[in-house]
Structures are given as structure tokens and as C-alpha cells.
Write a protein that binds this DNA or RNA. Structure first.
Length: 616
RNA sequence: GCCGACGUAGCUCAGUGGUAGAGCAAUGGUUUCGUAAACCAUCGGUCCCGAGUUCGAAUCUCGGCGUCGGCUCCA
């Protein structure tokens, strides 16, 4: 799997459409300035699939303004004026943009000599028509080269991405080298909308977030609860097979715990609490992470090196306060369950343990039909805890675990968290979007803070290494991902309704009940309407809407021959299989379930333009 | 948290100062029918919440809450 890494297109500066996209940003900014005199320019880069420009406008933009801006852009494109490059000295540039009231550009030029080291004390200027912008380029030759574009949305963005700086209006647009590519891209966006887990969550009765209950808190409705139960059952089995010890830990803990762990200090803003008990003398907090609990389990007695590695796992539910604007369906919530594990081991064992986790992670991704994994090794950030020697050891353990497997990986220099270097696995879903998959970290902080030790073979106390890993991450987020990945059409082993039985008429009920019983015996989830029955076609339609894995139509003919008429989910009109022996069908669904097969209507790796939707 | 838009029945939405609407869903009935929407009827709304303006507010103003698109943050 990992060997396919090279197929992934690389974006950013290598994007051949970069000049086109950046040029479109200029044309848009020019159009806005024509329509809204006094507009101040921020920055307007090319991004994946298009471009944006951050602007300070004299008034707030409404969505109705976008067509007007587009129209003005088309005029500029039609005029087909050239993009011309000029050089100005730094001082000239500052004077020029100051005169034109472009404070942000002045701010940019001033920052150049600090950040990038002024190349030759000059700055690049690009002009088309009367529009002049500070810019390194490159651009397309003429505005007429920009043919297939569309403005997409309006959003707020801070100047230089800094919350304390003024907020500008960001206009997003998309541009392609042909109308055909643009149409394909727009079609892809529609596909994403169709798969949106929030819409499918309503339609298929998967989950609900109730305002009165609290935003960011998920109610798993019965259908999705079936998916979760199956996932959890399988997860537990897999972990038992691999030598994990599964535990349960409390949902709240005394303040002492989070003072010691450092959570209150470093993470307190995201924690719910305090809950004042015993007349306010004792404070408790709701757990935001499972690590302290697992450490306490480890420390429940003196540990010998013979017990190591000790792999402690839990489907642990945690609560974190997230700012209102960041919540998003099931993907970003305030209460969620992590498939968390902490592996306590020696430094000698660390590399092998990490390798085992990595192999398990790959198996996970394969099972669910994710493709093209890319592995990142994130090393020590500037602000960090622990000694360089510890970071060396931890990074080496991760690196060697990957090295032994000859897995290609990329290094994200300085991308680790303050207490740990990590391995991240990113994967592609069925429509080519990148998702954050499993992560593995070596925690360099908590073992010190909690003084986590074991007795080594010389009878001495030795500091334990703590490997922290999640595969799903949060069940909420990853199941939301699965909903979109499968477009609601789950593999049979996870499907809430594996088989729907549709009797032709009420007099077919007796045989229908027998079919249901035969399927339920080996544990297949069967839906069978009870009389009085609606029109048969309507019941078929409803079963399809519920995403039943198979629809069995049974009537007199089937009863006579002990057969069923089978409509697999996703089958085209008139594509049912008639006269299938009941016993054969039972064998078939049981096998498909037990093999955890990907669904027949699952089509991974749809080609097409890439889409800016990196979901983490 | 910030910028902008939005909030009307379970869902999708119409209704811009004068007594709250449609389709789907739900419920009751009729229909017994061979592979993607039968027919009739009924039920259903503190128009997000609070305050204000007005003779009168779903509609205008202010505040709050929530949702959506982003920013920031992140599992």
C-alpha cells in the first residue's frame, strides 16, 4: 500500500495552474477595486483548486455581489490586456503603496527585509490595465488566458492569519484551464455535498445534535449505533488478539490529577470544570484525555520489566470545550470517544512496539478501503519539553520502526507536539480527499510528571517509555468520515439493515417470516414490514432509501421453490436476481459479512480534479 | 472567539408591517398490487429566545443562542 505513494499529485508551488490561478486573483482584486473604490488589498495567492484575495472593503459583501464582480472580471478578461512586470526599489514601493492608501502592502514590504532578506533591495510589481499589485509572479501573459473561473464564497480571514490583527474579507474563486475542467470540478463539489455526513445523518437517521442538549454533543441514533457497536466489537477483538489489556477509567478526576499532568496549565481553556464538591473544598474536572487514567492503571502496582510491554487500551470518552465557530457536524464536537491506547515499555522495546502499531494502522486503513497512505514523521518543535537526548531517542525509535519496514515517509521538521514526536498516517478517501488517519506518539512528558517506572532486571526503578496511539482518533470524526467515504452505503458487516424482506402481498407473510428467521439465526439484521402493507414498489423504494444491503422480494413463486428474489443495493433498475435458493443466499450474506468485504457499490479512487478538502 | 450569511411544521422551503402556507414525513382509512413514489382524509408551528419600535411584528431595531461558509484552533 505504502508503495503507491508516488501517485499522489503534489500541489502548491509545483501546480502548473499556479500562474493562472494567481493571475485570476489579480483580476478579481482589480474588479473589486473598480466596483468598490477605496478597497485595500491584503494578499491574494493561488491555492489548491483556485485562489483567494483578502481585501478590506468599504462595506460588507453579500453573496449577490459575487456575480457583479464576476461580470467585471469577464470584461477584463475580454479586454485581454497584458500582465506587465516592473521593479521598484523598496523605498519607491513603500512610497507608491502609501500614496495609494494600500497599508497592507506597505506592511508587507516592510516585513520583507526581516523575513526573506531583501534580495536586491527591490520589489516586484505586476500591472494589468490600471491595477497594480505587489507581487513576485509569475503570471500568465494576458488576462484573456483566464477563461474558466467562478467565484465561490466570501469569508473572513485575519491579516497574516493573526487573531489580533484586523479581519479582512476573503473571496474564494476557482479557475481551470478549460471549461470542461471547471465543470468537472463543480460536479465534484456537488458529489461532496451529496456525501456530506450532516445531510446523510438526517436522511438516514444516523445522528442528531440537539441544541437544547448542547451544541457539539452527539446523539448516536439507532442506525449509526449499530455501526458503532460493530466497530467497537471488532476493535476489541483485534486488540485482544494483539495483546492489549482493555480498561475503563472514570470520566471525571480530581484537580490534583490535572495539575500533575499539566493539563490544567496547558489545556485548561479546553476543559469543563471545575465541579466543586464537598462545600467547594474539592474540585473535579471532566477528562479531556485518557492518558492520566491509563497511567494510574499502570501504577496500580509495582511493575516488573517482565510485564512489559503493557498495552493499555480504552474506548475512552472525553470532553473538550471547543470554540463555537469550530464545531462541524460529527467531525468537530465537544464530546467524543477516542480509541486510545498507551503502551508502556522499555526503550529497547519501543521501536518494535511502534512497528506493530504501524502495521495495525495499515490494516485498519486497508479494511475500510482507504488508499494511498502517506506517512509523516513529525520531529521536535522549537517550544518543547524534555532534553535533546530524550528527543533523539524518541525520534530514532519512530524513524527506525519505519526504516525496518522500508516505508517511504516524509519528515515534517518541527511538526511534533510540545511533548512528543509523532508518526501521522494520512489517507485518501473514495473521492480523493485526504484524511488524518492513525497517529503514534512517544510521550516525553507524562512519564516524568507522574514518575512512571518499572523494576528492571537489576532490581532498579527505571523510567517507562509511553507510546501513545489512536487508530480511529475519535469515533465521531472517523465515523463521519466513513459516512462520506461510503456515501452512506456501508459494508455489509457494518450496515444497520443488512437485508430487507418485501412480501409481495400479505398472503406472502408466512414465507417472509420464515426467510427472516433463517437469516436472523446466524445474526443477520433483517427488516420485515408487518401488515397492513403499503404498495410493494413503495416498500422497495423505502428499503433502498434505508440503504438495505439486500432487498428480497418474496411471494408465492418463491415460497414454492424455497427461493428469494435478490436486489443487491445499488443494482440498476431491473437487475434483480430471481430464483436464488434461500439457503444459498443465507450462506452468501453470512460470508460477505464475515469477510468484512467492501460493498459491491463502493468505487474508490474516483479520478477527477483534486478538491480542497483536507479534513483533520 | 472573530468576519459574513442564515434561523418559519420531523425534513426541504414559500411567505418583507394586518388572523401562518406547500411538498415530503407522520396518523387514520381505502387499495392486495411481482421489483424505485397508489388514492382520500387528518394531525402537526411560543415563525430560535428576550427586549424594543408600532394600533398591530414571522416581517423593523437591539441583545443573546444556534446553524452554515471561512479565519484561528484541533481528535
Amino acid at each position: 500500500m505504502a508503495k503507491q505513494l508516488g501517485r499522489r499529485p503534489d500541489h502548491g508551488a509545483e501546480d502548473p495552474l499556479h500562474p493562472l490561478r494567481h493571475s485570476a486573483a489579480h483580476v478579481m482584486a482589480g474588479a473589486v477595486m473598480d466596483l468598490f473604490p477605496g478597497t485595500k488589498l491584503g494578499i491574494g495567492p493561488a491555492v489548491k483548486d483556485g485562489f483567494y484575495y483578502d481585501l478590506a472593503l468599504p462595506r460588507a459583501l453579500a453573496p449577490d455581489d459575487l456575480p457583479r464582480i464576476e461580470e467585471r472580471m469577464r470584461e477584463v478578461v475580454k479586454a485581454n490586456v497584458p500582465f506587465e512586470r516592473k521593479q521598484m526599489s523598496r523605498d519607491e514601493g513603500i512610497r507608491f503603496f502609501t500614496e495609494h492608501g494600500q497599508d497592507f502592502k506597505v506592511d508587507l514590504i516592510r516585513s520583507f527585509d526581516r523575513a526573506e532578506g531583501a534580495e536586491d533591495d527591490s520589489v516586484g510589481i505586476y500591472q494589468h490595465g490600471s491595477f497594480v499589485d505587489l507581487c513576485k509572479g509569475p503570471h500568465v501573459q494576458r488576462t484573456g488566458d483566464i477563461t474558466a473561473f467562478k467565484l465561490m464564497s466570501i469569508a473572513g480571514a485575519y491579516w497574516r492569519g493573526d487573531e489580533t490583527k484586523p479581519q479582512l474579507t476573503r473571496i474564494y474563486g476557482t479557475v481551470w484551464s478549460s471549461q470542461k475542467d471547471l465543470d468537472a470540478y463543480l460536479e465534484k463539489l456537488k458529489e461532496i455535498e451529496r456525501r456530506d455526513h450532516r445531510a446523510l445523518g438526517r436522511d438516514l437517521e444516523l445522528f442528531r445534535i440537539d441544541d437544547e442538549l448542547g451544541s457539539g454533543l452527539v446523539l448516536w441514533l439507532p442506525n449509526l449505533s449499530v455501526v458503532r457497536e460493530e466497530l467497537e466489537t471488532w476493535w476489541r477483538r483485534v486488540h485482544h488478539e494483539r495483546g492489549y489489556t482493555l480498561v475503563y477509567t472514570p470520566h471525571i478526576a480530581h484537580e490534583k490529577t490535572y495539575q500533575r499532568s499539566g493539563h490544567l496549565e496547558k489545556y485548561g481553556e479546553n476543559m469543563y470544570g471545575p465541579l466543586a464538591l464537598d462545600e467547594g473544598t474539592q474540585n473535579f474536572w471532566i477528562k479531556p484525555m485518557n492518558c492520566p487514567g491509563h497511567i494510574k492503571v499502570f501504577q496500580s502496582k509495582v511493575r516488573s520489566y517482565r510485564e512489559l510491554p503493557l498495552r493499555i487500551g480504552e474506548l475512552g470518552t472525553v470532553y473538550r470545550y471547543e470554540r463555537g465557530g469550530t464545531l462541524h457536524g460529527m467531525q468537530r464536537v465537544r464530546g467524543f470517544t477516542q480509541d486510545d491506547s498507551h503502551i508502556f515499555c522499555t526503550w529497547q522495546q519501543a521501536q518494535e512496539e511502534i512497528g506493530k502499531v504501524f502495521d495495525l494502522a495499515m490494516e485498519f486503513m486497508r479494511l475500510f478501503g482507504y488508499s494511498d497512505p502517506v506517512i509523516y514523521l513529525s520531529t521536535r518543535p522549537e517550544r518543547r519539553l524534555g532534553t535533546d537526548e530524550m528527543w533523539d531517542r524518541a525520534e530514532n525509535a519512530l524513524r527506525e520502526a519505519l526504516g525496518v519496514r522500508e516505508v517511504p515517509y516524509r519528515i515534517d521538521e518541527g511538526g511534533g507536539v510540545f511533548y512528543a514526536p509523532k508518526i501521522d498516517v494520512k489517507v485518501m478517501d473514495a473521492i480523493g480527499r485526504e484524511w488524518q488517519g492513525p497517529t503514534i506518539q512517544i510521550d516525553l512528558n507524562l512519564p516524568e510528571r507522574f514518575d512512571v517506572t518499572f523494576v528492571n532486571d537489576r532490581g532498579e526503578r527505571e523510567r517507562a517509555v509511553m507510546v501513545h496511539r489512536v487508530l480511529f482518533g475519535s469515533l465521531e470524526r472517523s465515523v463521519a468520515g466513513l459516512i462520506e467515504h461510503y456515501a452512506g452505503n456501508f459494508p455489509l458487516w457494518l450496515a444497520w439493515e443488512q437485508v430487507a424482506i418485501v412480501p409481495v402481498r400479505e398472503d406472502g407473510m408466512e414465507y417472509a417470516r420464515r426467510v427472516a428467521a433463517e437469516l436472523r439465526a446466524p445474526g443477520i439484521r433483517v427488516h420485515l414490514d408487518e401488515p397492513p402493507l403499503a404498495d410493494m414498489r413503495e416498500r422497495i423504494r423505502e428499503a433502498q432509501h434505508r440503504r438495505a444491503g439486500y432487498i428480497l422480494v418474496v411471494g408465492a413463486k418463491e415460497a414454492e421453490g424455497e427461493t428469494v428474489s435478490v436486489r443487491p443495493r445499488g443494482a440498476a433498475k431491473g437487475q434483480e436476481e430471481r430464483g436464488v435458493k434461500l439457503a444459498d443466499f443465507v450462506t452468501r450474506v453470512v460470508r460477505e459479512r464475515d469477510e468484512q468485504a467492501l460493498p459491491g457499490d463502493f468505487k474508490p479512487g474516483d479520478e477527477g480534479p483534486s478538491v480542497a478538502a483536507s479534513l483533520e
